[in-house]
Design a protein around this nucleic acid. Sequence first.
DNA 1: GCTCGCTATGCTTTTCAGGCATGACGATGA
DNA 2: TCATCGTCATGCCTGAAAAGCATAGCGAGC
Lengths: 296, 296
Amino acid sequence: MELRHLRYFVAIAAERSMSRAAEQLHLTQPSLSRQIRQLEHELGVVLFERTTTGTALTPGGAAFYHHARLLLRLADASREAAHSAGETTREVVDLGIPPGLSPEWVVWLLGLLREQVGDASVLITEANSAEQLRMVREGRLDLGLVHERPVRALNGTRLFGQPFGVAVRPDHPLAERTECTLRELHGLRILAHGREQVQAAHDALIAAAHERGVTPLWRFAQFSEHARSCAEATESDAVVLTENSARRLLPQWPWLRLAEDPVDLTTWLIWQSATRAVVTRVAEVISGLAEPATAP
Amino acid sequence: MELRHLRYFVAIAAERSMSRAAEQLHLTQPSLSRQIRQLEHELGVVLFERTTTGTALTPGGAAFYHHARLLLRLADASREAAHSAGETTREVVDLGIPPGLSPEWVVWLLGLLREQVGDASVLITEANSAEQLRMVREGRLDLGLVHERPVRALNGTRLFGQPFGVAVRPDHPLAERTECTLRELHGLRILAHGREQVQAAHDALIAAAHERGVTPLWRFAQFSEHARSCAEATESDAVVLTENSARRLLPQWPWLRLAEDPVDLTTWLIWQSATRAVVTRVAEVISGLAEPATAP
DNA sequence: GCTCGCTATGCTTTTCAGGCATGACGATGA
DNA sequence: TCATCGTCATGCCTGAAAAGCATAGCGAGC
């Protein structure tokens, strides 16, 4: 039995579903399923009642649940105890993040960093790419997550690219499709991010549309958490969004991939060449999250 | 951070030495060293002060120690809680062990089994090989650890072989050596196990000596935990022992391997062909402890 | 009966704990 | 002062197991 098992077990018990818990834990459902079986086998107790609609605690599981939660809380407390007793100087690392990242992901990232680089206190600053680039250059940020390829003596590594897509009203004719072309957006009322939010992507999107002679009725806004309200206020047919980070903003709206991939919102990690060791370690952990390079 | 790290950490803190703790945990010192480094790195706190004579807790480590012990105790309690709440029928598995196995090893084995086959309660019965064979055949034991190759429709798997050796008085002429031959024992007063204890090995040893025309002054006794007393009571020059399980009986006496390997005390795991599933699972875990076959 | 959402299983890939060999370093004793 | 010993650390390799991917099975609800 390892703490891993307890973390998984508690997540499932809380979510009452393996699939959802797996998502939350950032792993796949089969993996989770097997870990729990292993735990059950080791304990000699069936912890969950698996139904087709979800997963419920057995009496034994319920008893175990309280202990498990206590254990995890205590584990956190131990970390704290070690810290406060040891006169460790936790170094502060300032990390910039672009607006529009999902809060869950940020929370998860902070957890990961606390796990892997215990002696770093990571401070988050939200700013767009241009601001972050400036701040990193001026030494006001240690690390930045930006959507522009870094230049001018800044170190940078590509993390992942998110293809643009379009979210359309559920009753829209395009709603049945999974892909569409820029051309098909001609004449539609389109809500897209303002230039200030993700400058590079904004410019590329406008350019790609222009190049194809497509002229949607653009409306630009600084929507982030209020995409739905913006869309309804402006009576848009569709909203241009990027994949992972923004689809959740309109969970009810079908999402269509832009077939031509005119824009790929790439996220980079940037930092100054000369930096502290702890910053390098944090940078390494974040770099480890990069998706494998797409096959040519 | 995993429970593994805590177990390791606590062991080291208790032993005040990584090497000794590693031995106790049945793993190597480098492994342990790295795990602790990893834990320290993750916590961001140096837990131990490494000196050339051992390992001492830092203030941070001391604070962490109390929490860690509490955590491990709580982890055990969780298992119990799950058991008593779940109406699990813990099946009893009766396991026979030969006299002379080190108590530490038996404790370790029971811990391993509890970890890996949680729904089994393993009951230990100490008996010599002949008795165990009979008991397994009669169904009074589920599994047996014996020193004879099983016959007559019993399943069996070889676990490990222990070469015989001789422990000699510290002031004996042979004491500087690391090996000796049977021939060199000629005329010495030798204390060996009685035939009842490990029949097969006893017979083979006597036969091997006879075959080589060697006639030591044999004295046979049922010594186990009192080898020292027996040896002194009988004024022996040397005592015949097997490697791991029995060397500890005379920690101060130098131990010489028998060069000809006339006898190799092999331990087998035996069980009836038709048995319960839980017994099979326990058998599998124990079989997993078998040493890799020695190269030809 | 069909689809949908949930969990389980078979397989492959990848990660990492562990082992072995060896190095560095201080303590101890000749 | 130097050799020896016992301590912990490091490099390299292997093997176990965790995680991923694809897919099957299965009950609920339409």
